[in-house]
């Protein structure tokens, strides 16, 4: 009798995340989902579809396009949007650069990762979004361990870690003044392994980049980076063909690949379960300083 009412933990996490998605739709006038094309935002989108079925999801997907995306990510995004009949809003970092609002970084470590914060804030203001749902998780990075489900941002999109609203039970307080908005994180309580197991359980489609494939890469500072037009080679760096996959999908310039034979979800889960390096360990953007993530979040980063 009681066994009937035992739930595995993925079902419990799903129920919590669906609750959060519906709370967003109910409490905000102009919510949006921040869609990066990575597995976490794909899972958020999947949860949104489940939350509002059989209706379409009542909010647009927003993609901040750095112009340095993997072509596979863009193709995947376009297919998904078409299948779900959702609205897509694209914020372009190239436009922000063309408008002279930000300067392109130079040097061999240049990336557009930091620049996209300005584009994101502009896109939020232009569309008057009052809630942006993202796929970030508390287990990703230590400054995220204290993140709320409903995370308040002031008129300048800034996050103040010392002045967060206490969040009790499942009572989310989304009240805000005009111009302020919330970042909402339905996957807060998920770990990387939970996300992968859920993708397997729900048979969710992912960009091919997550699976083992042949690609031309270089090695730099202990990392493997994919060759692209945006990568400036340093002296002595030689592209070579490798069998790799990606663990996260950021920009081409900063997302480290690693050598892997895992070409199915089951093999990826085996690999993730056995891996001893955190997911963000492969991202150059976090390596700039030990508080790199906290600093970017205060500025309005994802």
């Amino acid at each position: 009798m009681t066994e009937l009412y035992n739930l595995d933990h993925l079902t419990e996490l799903e129920a919590e995340s669906i609750f959060v998605m519906r709370e967003v739709a109910a409490q905000f006038d102009r919510p949006a989902i921040l869609f990066s094309g990575g597995k976490d935002s794909i899972v958020v989108t999947h949860l949104a579809m489940k939350a509002f079925a059989p209706a379409r999801i009542p909010m647009p997907l927003v993609h901040i396009d750095t112009g340095h995306n993997f072509p596979e990510t863009i193709a995947f995004r376009n297919n998904l949007i078409q299948d779900m009949g959702a609205n897509l809003i694209v914020g372009s970092v190239q436009d922000t650069i063309n408008q002279g609002k930000v300067q392109e970084e130079t040097g061999s470590n240049a990336s557009r990762n930091k620049l996209q914060t300005t584009t994101l804030i502009d896109t939020i203001e232009e569309n008057r979004f009052d809630a942006c749902v993202g796929g970030a998780r508390r287990d990703e990075e230590k400054s995220r361990a204290k993140e709320r489900f409903f995370s308040h941002r002031d008129d300048f999109s800034q996050w103040d870690p010392k002045n967060q609203r206490p969040e009790l039970w499942n009572l989310f307080n989304g009240m805000h003044a005009p111009g302020e908005h919330f970042r909402v994180f339905p996957l807060n309580n998920w770990t990387e392994l939970d996300v992968w197991n859920y993708i397997l359980k729900e048979k969710i489609e992912l960009p091919s980049l997550y699976f083992s494939h042949e690609r031309e890469c270089i090695r730099r500072e202990g990392q493997i980076l994919a060759m692209s037009d945006f990568l400036k080679l340093r002296a002595g760096e030689k592209p070579e063909m490798m069998r790799i996959r990606f663990r996260t999908l950021g920009d081409l310039t900063i997302t480290g690949a690693f050598e892997s034979e895992a070409d199915t979800l089951e093999k990826i889960i085996e690999e993730v379960a056995a891996t001893r390096i955190t997911e963000r360990g492969g991202r150059m953007d976090d390596k700039r300083s030990s508080s790199a993530m906290e600093d970017r979040k205060k500025d309005g980063y994802f």
């Binding site: 609750f19 709370e23 739709a25 509002f52 059989p54 209706a55």
Partner: peptide
């Protein structure tokens, strides 16, 4: 009740 789902599509 958290949210009322009304698809308003031909199918539903």
């Amino acid at each position: 009740i958290q949210y009322v789902v009304r698809p308003q599509t031909d199918e539903h």
